[in-house]
Design a protein around this nucleic acid. Structure first.
Length: 1047
RNA sequence: GGGCGAUUAGCUCAGGUGGUUAGAGCGCAUCCCUGAUAAGGAUGAGGUCCCUGGUUCGAGUCCAGGAUCGCCCA
C-alpha cells in the first residue's frame, strides 16, 4: 500500500506533463497497450499521411488530437488498435522546395541539372522536418507508431502502387486520351481537379467584344465575347445556343448579331433590332476568323452549354483550350490545332507573338484586332481564375495526352458505398461529398514530373503496344537489361529499363509520366502493408478502416482517392467512419497566414498551457467540423473551466487523504446504500455520466462526451465537495468520513478513466496517484485500464430532489442578497414554498439547504397562499397535442380558474375541470404549471414553482453566533499567516470588546474545534507570549489574538 | 453562377422529434467565502435567436425567398 504523492498547485502542470511523458517512454506504455490487446478484435485506424517537408502547424495538432482520441478510447474498450504512421513523400511541393534551394526554376533547368541528383535532393528534403514532426507528435500525446511508418517513396510502397495500376490496366480501366486539362506552364504539368481547387484567385483579364464578319453577308458580323484573347488565334468555330433567340441589330452604321436578350446590355439603347434570328438562320454559316494564321472550319455551330448570362450569347470555340470547346470539336468534327508550346508560349504558327507567353500576348493581339477594325470594345473583367496551387502561375486549359483511370465506370458503385459510410457531420455524405461523386469524371493520374511514383507503363517504339508492369519481379523478367537487387524504382533509373514488346518483340520504353500523389495516398490501405506481396491475408483485420479523420478540405483529396481506389480494386469502401474537421482561424475568424502575422505556433501553446489544455479546447470547444476561432485565450478558458477545476478537486482529495487520519484505497468504507444522500447522488451522476460519455464516444461525438464530463466535474467540485468539505477533516463519525473519501475517490478515479482519451496526461497523473500507487493489481497506466462500465446506481428521484435543493439554495442566496444579509450571519429559518411533490423529493436534503444558506431550520410550505401567491398556467406541451386549435380557449378557461383552489385540488390528487366549447374537460396535475409570487413578511425570491423566504429577524443569540464565525475566520487567516499546516494544533488567546468576548464565551467549543485549539483562553492575562499576534476588527468590534503551535 | 454549411448576449459557444420565462462560460457590475487559497462561489445587468414571408393553436426549431460570412466547385 503506497502513500500519496503530494500535489502542488496547478501552476506545475507542465512539469506534470513532462513527468508523464517520461513515464510513458520508460515504461513503454503505448507499445504495451497494443501488446496487451494482441488477438483482440481490431479497430482499424488509417493515418492520412502529411508531408514532412514543412513544419507542423496548429491545424496539424487539431487533426492529430482527433486522430488520437478514438484509438485511445477503443483501446480502453478492449480493441486492438494499430496506429501505423505515414508520410506523403512525393509531389510537386517537394520538387518546388528543391528548386528553390537550388535556385533553379522549371523543367528545362531541372533536366539540365540532372534528374538523378534532383530526385536525390527531393528524397532528402522530404524528411527535413521529420524530427520536429515526431517531437510534436509525442509532445501532444498522439500515440502513433512512427518507427514503422509507411513512406510513399519506399520501394515496397511503390511496388504495391504498381500492382494496383497494373490490375486496373489489365481490366481496361486505364487509358490515354487527348483531353483538355488544367495545365501549369511553369511546372510543365497537368493538375488534378483537386489541385486546381486550391488555387482559385481573383484576376483582372482584358475582356473583348470581337467582330466575326459573316463571310456570306458582307457588312454583318457576329459579336463574340471572350476573356482570353490569346485563345483567338486557335479559333475554329462560333457556338450559339439552339434554344436562344438571336437578333440582327443595326448600330452606328454596322450590323451585328448577338443574343436578343443581351442587345441592350451590350450595345446600349442606340441599337435598333432589324430582325430576330433562330438557329436555322445561323448554324452552318461561315465567318472570317479573328486571325488568319491557323486554318479551320470557321463556321457557326450549335452547342447547348452556351448561355446568355454574360457575353453576347455567341461563344468563340478554341478546341485546344477548353473542355467544352473540345467537346464541340468532337461533336462537329473540327480540328484541334494548338499553336502554343508546353511552356505556354506561342509557336511560330502565330508569327507576331511567336515565343511570347500567352498571357503576355494578350495586349499585342488585342491591338492587332483593333488595328484591323475587329475590336468593338475592351473592358477589364474581374473574375476568379485558377492558378497553380504552388507557384501561382495562372493555369491554362490545354489539350494534351494524359493517362486516365475510368472512375466514371464505378461512379454508381462509389455512390452506393458512400451511402454506407458514417460521415460526421452527416450532411457531407449526400452534400459536399455525394454531389462531388455524382459529377465524377475520369481521374487524370499522370503528371509530367520527376519526383513521384513512376507510371508503370512501357510503350513499344515500333508498334505502340502498351504493357503495364505490376511487380519488380515482372519487370526483371521482361527487361532486356534487368535492374539489380538494390533497384530504386524512381526516375531516372526506371527510365533506363527497356522491356521487350509483347506484341512485336521490339524495345519498349517507359512512358515519361509519374503518378498523381493523391493516388499514392489513396493507396495506403494496401501499399502500407506491401499488399499483395506480403502474402496471403496481409490485409486481414486491417481493411477497411473503422475510422479516419482529416480536415474537410480532403473531401476531394484523400477522402476521394481512398474511396475511388478501394472501390476499383476491392469493391468496398476503405473506411466505415470519417470525421471531418473545420479549419483553424484566428480569433477574428481570419485565416492564419504568415503574411498577416496571426499564426499561432503549436509550440507556443504547448510551452505555455500544455498538451491537455490544447487537446481539451480542440476536442470540446465546439463542433469539430466548424471553423475554430483559435487563440491563446480560448485555451486558457478551457484550462480554467475544466482542467483546473479537476486539478483542484484532485489536490483537495490528496491533501486530506494524506493526513494521519486520512484514507487510502482499500480502507474500509460503508456500502453505497448506507452512505449519505449526497454520496449516493454524486455516484448516481457518475454512473449517468459514464453511460453518456460511452454513448457519445461510440457516436464519434467527443464534444458532447467531453462536456458531459465537464458538467460532472463541476458538480463534484462545486456541489459535492463544497457541501461535504467538513466530512473530510472533521467528521466525528469515522464511517461518514470513510464514505466521503471512498465516494470522492471513486469519482476522481473514474473521471480519470473517462478523460484518459481526451487529456491523457492529467488522467495518468490522477490514476497513478490515486489508483496505481495503492493497488498492485491495478494497471500501472490509465491507458492500460479498461473503460468503465456504468454502475446501476442511477437514482432519478434523488437527482430531481437535489436539483430542487440546488434551486432552493440559489433562491435563498438571492433572497439574502436582496435583504443584505451575509451568509456568515446565521438566520433562524428559511421557508420553501413549493408543491408537495417537490417538498417530498427534497426530503432528507433539507439539511444541505440549511447548511448552504446558514439557517437553523428549513420549513416547507405546500399550501398555496402561505408566503406566496400561486398562479396556474396551461402546460402547452401536454395540452397542445390534445386540444389543437382549441388551445386559446383552454388557456382562457385555465386563466379563469381560482388558482389556489385548483392547486389544492391537484395536491389532493383530484383533477381540475374546465369548460371548453361546451364540454367538460379534466386537467391533471401535469397539465397545469404553477408559478408562485412572493407575498409579504419574509425576504423572498422565487423561480417557477419554488419560492424561498428567509426570516430576517436577528436575535442576540444569532448575532453572537455570527460573530463567532467571524472570529473563526480571523483565526484561520492568522493560522495561515503564521505558516501552520492544516493539521497543526494550537494554543489560542483572544481578547476584544464586550460583544466579542460574549460571542467567544458562548461558542468556545465551536471556535476551539474549528481552529484546532487545544487551549483557548479569553481576556485577561494571556498565559503565553504567542508566536503570532494580530489585532483586527470583526463586525466593527476590536479583536486581539495570539496563537502558537503546540507539540 | 452552382453546391454545402454557418448566422442565438459585448466575446466564444449549447440549444433530440415544434410547446412554460431561450441557456452556459468568459468579460462586466455588485457581492460572498476564506482549511481547495497565486484558488473558489453567488447574485445581477446584458437577447428584434440575420431579415421577410409562409405552415401551425403555438416557430430559435419546419418550409420558401433574401442578406452576410466561410468552404468547395464552375
Amino acid at each position: 500500500m503506497g502513500a500519496y504523492r503530494e500535489v502542488g498547485p496547478a501552476a506545475g502542470w507542465l512539469d506534470m506533463e513532462r513527468r508523464v511523458l517520461e513515464f510513458w517512454r520508460e515504461r513503454r506504455i503505448f507499445a504495451r497497450s497494443l501488446q496487451e490487446r494482441a488477438g483482440a478484435e481490431p479497430y482499424v485506424f488509417y493515418e492520412g499521411p502529411p508531408t514532412a517537408n514543412g513544419r507542423p502547424g496548429s491545424h496539424h495538432v487539431l487533426s492529430r488530437v482527433f486522430k488520437d482520441v478514438f484509438p485511445r478510447f477503443q483501446t480502453m474498450r478492449g480493441r486492438h488498435v494499430e496506429r501505423k504512421g505515414g508520410w506523403d513523400c512525393h509531389g510537386l511541393p517537394v520538387e518546388l522546395e528543391v528548386e528553390r534551394q537550388l535556385g533553379i526554376s522549371g523543367k528545362p533547368e531541372i533536366e539540365a541539372y540532372g534528374i538523378a541528383e534532383f530526385n536525390r535532393r527531393c528524397r532528402e528534403s522530404v524528411t527535413t522536418y521529420l524530427d520536429e514532426w515526431e517531437r510534436l507528435t509525442e509532445r501532444i500525446g498522439f500515440w502513433l507508431d512512427t518507427d514503422a511508418a509507411y513512406r510513399t517513396m519506399d520501394t515496397d510502397y511503390i511496388e504495391s502502387v504498381w500492382w494496383s495500376l497494373a490490375e486496373l490496366f489489365e481490366r481496361g480501366m486505364v487509358y490515354e486520351s487527348d483531353k483538355v486539362v488544367p495545365y501549369c506552364p511553369r511546372c510543365g504539368t497537368a493538375l488534378s481537379s483537386h489541385e486546381v481547387a486550391q488555387g482559385y484567385g481573383e484576376v483582372t483579364d482584358p475582356s473583348v467584344y470581337v467582330r466575326f464578319p459573316l463571310a456570306d453577308e458582307p457588312g454583318t458580323a457576329l459579336l463574340v465575347w471572350t476573356t482570353t484573347p490569346w485563345t483567338l488565334p486557335a479559333n475554329q468555330a462560333a457556338a450559339i445556343n439552339p434554344d436562344t433567340a438571336y437578333a440582327l441589330v443595326e448600330v452606328g452604321g454596322e450590323r451585328l448579331v448577338l443574343a436578343a436578350a443581351l442587345v441592350e446590355r451590350v450595345l446600349g439603347e442606340g441599337a435598333r433590332v432589324v430582325r430576330t434570328l433562330g438557329p436555322e438562320d445561323l448554324v452552318g454559316r461561315p465567318y472570317e476568323p479573328p486571325f488568319g494564321y491557323v486554318p479551320g472550319a470557321h463556321r457557326i455551330v450549335a452547342a447547348p452549354f452556351v448561355t446568355t448570362e454574360d457575353g453576347t450569347g455567341i461563344v468563340h470555340i478554341a478546341p485546344a483550350f477548353g473542355e467544352d470547346d473540345m467537346q464541340v470539336a468532337r461533336d462537329h468534327g473540327l480540328d484541334t490545332p494548338n499553336p502554343v508550346d508546353r511552356q505556354g508560349r506561342f509557336t511560330d504558327r502565330v508569327p507576331p507573338v511567336a515565343g511570347v507567353f500567352v498571357k503576355d500576348a494578350d495586349r499585342a493581339l488585342v491591338e492587332d484586332l483593333a488595328a484591323r477594325g475587329r475590336l468593338l470594345r475592351e473592358q477589364p473583367y474581374v473574375h476568379a481564375y485558377p492558378h497553380c496551387w504552388r507557384c501561382s502561375t495562372p493555369l491554362l486549359y490545354y489539350a494534351k495526352p494524359s493517362w486516365y483511370i475510368r472512375t466514371t465506370r464505378v461512379r454508381d458503385r462509389m455512390l452506393e458505398l458512400n451511402a454506407g459510410i458514417g460521415w460526421h457531420p452527416e450532411h457531407v455524405r449526400d452534400g459536399r461529398f455525394g454531389r462531388w461523386l455524382e459529377g465524377n469524371v475520369d481521374w487524370a493520374i499522370s503528371r509530367e514530373r520527376y519526383w513521384g511514383t513512376p507510371l508503370p507503363l512501357w510503350r513499344c517504339g515500333t508498334c505502340a503496344d502498351v504493357q503495364a508492369v505490376g511487380s519488380f519481379a515482372a519487370l526483371r523478367e521482361r527487361a532486356v537489361n534487368p535492374p539489380g537487387d538494390d533497384f530504386d524504382p524512381h526516375r531516372p533509373h526506371v527510365d533506363d529499363v527497356v522491356l521487350r514488346c509483347r506484341a512485336c518483340g521490339d524495345d519498349a520504353h517507359r512512358v515519361p509520366e509519374v503518378v498523381d500523389v493523391w493516388y499514392d495516398s489513396g493507396a495506403m490501405p494496401f501499399a502500407q502493408r506491401h499488399h499483395p506481396f506480403a502474402g496471403q491475408g496481409d490485409l486481414e483485420g486491417r481493411f477497411p478502416a473503422d475510422f479516419i479523420c482529416e480536415a474537410i478540405d480532403q473531401t476531394r483529396g484523400w477522402f476521394y482517392s481512398l474511396l475511388a481506389e478501394s472501390t476499383l480494386l476491392f469493391d468496398e469502401a476503405a473506411y466505415r467512419n470519417v470525421l471531418c474537421l473545420g479549419l483553424i482561424l484566428d480569433h477574428d475568424g481570419q485565416k492564419m497566414s504568415k503574411s498577416k502575422g496571426n499564426v499561432i505556433e503549436p509550440w507556443t501553446v504547448l510551452d505555455r498551457q500544455g498538451a491537455d489544455a490544447f487537446r481539451w479546447y480542440l476536442l470540446t470547444g465546439q463542433s469539430p467540423w466548424e471553423s475554430f476561432r483559435f487563440s491563446l485565450d480560448v485555451v486558457d478558458e478551457a484550462m480554467r473551466r475544466f482542467l483546473f477545476t479537476l486539478w483542484n478537486t484532485y489536490a483537495f482529495f490528496v491533501t486530506y487523504a494524506s493526513l494521519p487520519d486520512g484514507w487510502a484505497p482499500g480502507d474500509p468504507a460503508p456500502p453505497v446504500a448506507a452512505r449519505p444522500a449526497m454520496d449516493r447522488w454524486i455516484l448516481s451522476r457518475l454512473d449517468d455520466t459514464t453511460a453518456r460519455v460511452t454513448e457519445r464516444m461510440e457516436a464519434y461525438d467527443p464534444t458532447a462526451a467531453g462536456r458531459a464530463v465537464e458538467d460532472l466535474v463541476d458538480e463534484v467540485s462545486n456541489w459535492y465537495v463544497r457541501t461535504s468539505r467538513r466530512r473530510f477533516w472533521r467528521s466525528e463519525d469515522a464511517d461518514d468520513r470513510a464514505a466521503a473519501f471512498a465516494t470522492l475517490h471513486e469519482c476522481l478515479s473514474t473521471v480519470a478513466l473517462l478523460v484518459a482519451p481526451f487529456c491523457p496526461f492529467v488522467a495518468e497523473e490522477i490514476h497513478g496517484n490515486l489508483v496505481a500507487a495503492h493497488d498492485p493489481a491495478a494497471p500501472e497506466s490509465v491507458h492500460l485500464a479498461r473503460w468503465p462500465e456504468p454502475g446501476a446506481r442511477r437514482d432519478e428521484a434523488l437527482e430531481a430532489g437535489m436539483t430542487a435543493a440546488m434551486e432552493a439554495t440559489s433562491l435563498g442566496r438571492s433572497a439574502r442578497k436582496e435583504a443584505r444579509l451575509k451568509v456568515r450571519q446565521p438566520l433562524a429559518e428559511a421557508v420553501v414554498a413549493c408543491p408537495p411533490a417537490v417538498a417530498e423529493s427534497v426530503g432528507g436534503l433539507a439539511g444541505v439547504v440549511a447548511d448552504e444558506l446558514n439557517v437553523k431550520d428549513v420549513r416547507f410550505v405546500t399550501d398555496p397562499g402561505e408566503l406566496v401567491e400561486v398562479t396556474v398556467k396551461p402546460n402547452y406541451r401536454t395540452l397542445g397535442p390534445r386540444f389543437g386549435k382549441a388551445m386559446p380557449r383552454v388557456a382562457a378557461a385555465v386563466a379563469a380558474l381560482d388558482p389556489a383552489a385548483a392547486v389544492r385540488a391537484l395536491d389532493a390528487g383530484s383533477a381540475v375541470e374546465v369548460e371548453v366549447d361546451g364540454g367538460r374537460e379534466r386537467l391533471a396535475d401535469t397539465d397545469l404549471l404553477r408559478e408562485v409570487r412572493p407575498s409579504t413578511g419574509y425576504a423572498v425570491a422565487q423561480g417557477g414553482a419554488i419560492a424561498v423566504g428567509l426570516a430576517t429577524a436577528l436575535t442576540p443569540e444569532l448575532e453572537r453566533e455570527g460573530m463567532a464565525r467571524d472570529v473563526v475566520r480571523v483565526v484561520q487567516n492568522a493560522r495561515r499567516a503564521a505558516g501552520l499546516r492544516v493539521e497543526d494544533r494550537i494554543r489560542l488567546h483572544l481578547d476584544g470588546s464586550g460583544r466579542v468576548r460574549e460571542a467567544v464565551d458562548a461558542h468556545r467549543g465551536y471556535i476551539a474545534t474549528e481552529t484546532l485549539a487545544e487551549a483557548l483562553t479569553v481576556a485577561h492575562g494571556a498565559p503565553f507570549a504567542g508566536d503570532h499576534r494580530e489585532e483586527t476588527l470583526v463586525d466593527g468590534e476590536p479583536l486581539a489574538l495570539r496563537l502558537e503551535r503546540v507539540g
